[in-house]
């Protein structure tokens, strides 16, 4: 597991760096495929099957094909290169490494104090190490990860995500119940269960309308027109 993670993590970072370095736009697209495909593999490793598959289908199979298609439509010569000047590259490298250093150094480390308030919600006293929070929140619900792959339980998030998009949150209900000390596995009360956490029905609908608007808008923007030189 960790070897696979290391491989795909390095592949995605290397791909991203090569996207920046490459000058030919189709090579950039190729390295972007390497990078985004490795990110999809990282999603699979992080038990997010559906997100990983969506990343492959929408990003790599859809968006990037569209981008390369755009490259072909807008190329004014073979292997079009629009070079970045060396000075700009040097400045970008320095600024980029400083920026990376800043982002990394802002990653929290330390410890966290976790308590439960009277409603059973978890309260983080000090925002410290995320993994300490993880250990404090989920000691009972999460199974120990022994490094092996079990396709019956790992990464099957399809149905919970589907329910979440329809406005039901089974996972939230369970977390709230499990953290109530000693009162878990009580008899099901359907009236109180699904109302515990809101789902994503409205954002889902908004996203679908948004996509329709984008579909029409993109078709309108990209419609065939006479070129400016022919008009003048």
């Amino acid at each position: 597991m960790s070897a696979l993670f290391l491989f795909f993590a390095i592949a995605s970072c290397l791909g991203a760096v090569l996207v920046v370095i490459s000058q030919s736009v189709v090579r950039m697209a190729f390295w972007l495929v390497v990078s985004l495909g490795s990110v999809a593999a990282l999603f699979f490793l992080a038990d997010a099957d559906f997100v990983g598959a969506a990343q492959l289908l929408i990003y790599v199979g859809g968006t990037l094909v569209l981008l390369v298609f755009g490259v072909m439509l807008t190329a004014s010569g073979p292997y079009m290169k629009i070079e970045t000047s060396p000075g700009e590259t040097a400045i970008a490298g320095v600024v980029g490494s400083l920026f990376l250093f800043m982002v990394i150094s802002s990653t929290p480390s330390g410890s966290a104090q976790l308590t439960l308030d009277e409603d059973g919600h978890t309260v983080v006293k000090r925002t410290g190490d995320w993994e300490a929070i993880h250990d404090a929140v989920k000691p009972a619900t999460s199974t120990p990860d022994d490094g092996s792959f079990d396709d019956k339980s790992d990464g099957n998030t399809l149905r919970p995500i589907g329910w979440a998009l329809l406005g039901l949150r089974p996972d939230r209900v369970d977390i709230t119940r499990e953290t109530e000390a000693g009162k878990k596995k009580e008899a099901a009360d359907p009236a109180s269960g699904p109302t515990a956490a809101p789902g994503y029905l409205l954002p889902f609908e908004i996203a679908s309308v948004h996509l329709l608007v984008v579909l029409i808008g993109a078709a309108y923007l990209a419609r065939a027109k006479r070129r400016s030189d022919e008009a003048s």
């Binding site: 920046v20 490298g93 920026f99 990376l100 990394i104 990653t107």
Partner: peptide, 10 residues
């Protein structure tokens, strides 16, 4: 972080 910074530079 690496992806983000590479994207910003790009």
């Amino acid at each position: 972080a690496v992806l983000f910074v590479c994207g910003v530079i790009c």
